[in-house]
């Protein structure tokens, strides 16, 4: 049962040059108690999509179409006041840089208490008690509550943010690159902590990251975005082991791994398209080794591989051939030569 259902969501930013189509018709679902990984390069629209769910878009951004259905209600249409109550209570966010989320001149206990009491009618004493419990859950000593944000290390701050995000027992947590700025040992601990807490609170999570290995470990489903559109969506296991979209195949080749065999890493040549004048057809066309005229002129349809796996590609049926070619450096080299000839450097 889809808990959160994003349908054909469009988010545009107003710029001097016109509308920037940051997100142009994406759809994905999230089940209760499950995790979804939103993966893509910088500028692909994943953070924008997350902000839109919480209606925290900047002034020049707007939801230009589509639905965000949460518990059978289209929250894209909610009033500001109703949305404010939804935020943190039902949907909370862990941002990339904890420094941005914490007020540097207010002690942490005050911040958590304020966040909780804005939404719930509890006494200060009760709230403080809850904060202490939350801190214990994330592995922080209660004495850290009295500190200012800068007195804690990066890892501790991030844990404090997680505690705050969980404070109201939300249904959905949106985590935007929650561990990118952290050391790998701390990252490991925090990710494991997030998983245990999720089990305990039965919350769902949307994890936004460019690191596929983190998604592989903790997300049930993965949604691969590119240039504001979805390329492939499905269970993590299926998408990563049985990729159907050339972009997914390309991403796999670009990822160094500490465990797997030493293979030649291959970059995907070229750059994402300009989102003010996006291409008419498939956005990945000019970086794709397998595209043709049809790909250039027509938007690819959604092809269902099964109930939990779909891809947006005109030639999804040729995936086996594509996959084989995608592992060869020469395939992508040909793309680079083609780009050079077209002068699109």
């Amino acid at each position: 049962m889809a808990f959160l259902n994003i349908q054909d969501l469009k988010i545009y930013y107003k710029t001097i040059r016109g509308d920037l189509k940051a997100v142009d018709g994406i759809s994905f679902t999230l089940e209760e108690g499950k995790n979804l990984g939103l993966v893509g390069e910088s500028g692909c629209g994943k953070t924008t999509a997350a902000k839109a769910i919480l209606r925290l878009l900047p002034e020049n951004g707007r939801i230009a179409g589509g639905k965000i259905i949460f518990r059978d209600q289209d929250i894209a249409q909610l009033s500001y006041e109703k949305m404010r109550r939804l935020r943190w209570n039902n949907i909370s966010m862990i941002s990339q840089s904890a420094m941005n989320a914490l007020n540097p001149v207010i002690r942490i206990d005050k911040q958590i208490i304020e966040a909780i009491r804005t939404h719930e009618n509890t006494t200060k004493k009760e709230t403080l008690q809850r904060a202490v419990e939350l801190f214990k859950l994330v592995g922080l000593e209660a004495k850290r509550l009295k500190a200012f944000p800068h007195e804690l290390s990066g890892g501790m701050r991030q844990r404090a943010i997680i505690a705050m995000a969980l404070a109201l027992d939300p249904d959905i947590i949106i985590a935007d690159e929650p561990t990118t700025a952290l050391d790998v040992v701390v990252q490991d601990k925090i990710l494991k902590k997030i998983l245990t807490l999720q089990d305990q609170f039965n919350s769902s999570m949307i994890l936004i990251t460019h690191d596929i290995s983190v998604v592989a470990e903790i997300c049930d489903k993965i949604c691969i975005m590119y240039a504001g559109k979805v390329m492939e969506f499905g269970t993590t296991s299926k998408v990563l082991k049985d990729p159907r979209h050339p972009y997914t195949m390309g991403l796999k080749n670009a990822f160094p791994s500490i465990l797997l065999e030493q293979k030649e890493l291959i970059s995907i040549p070229g750059y994402p398209p300009d989102l003010v004048n996006p291409p008419i057809g498939c956005p990945f066309f000019n970086r794709c080794p397998f595209g043709d005229e049809k790909c250039k002129d027509e938007q690819p349809p959604r092809e269902y591989i099964n109930d939990d796996h779909w891809v947006y590609c005109h030639y999804a049926d040729q995936y086996q051939d594509f996959r084989e070619k995608a592992t060869q450096g020469s395939t992508w080299e040909a793309v680079r030569k083609r780009q050079q000839e077209l002068g699109v450097v």
Partner: peptide, 10 residues
């Protein structure tokens, strides 16, 4: 960030 605008090469 560089995108595929039509750019006059200098």
């Amino acid at each position: 960030m560089n995108t595929q605008n039509d750019k006059q090469v200098v």
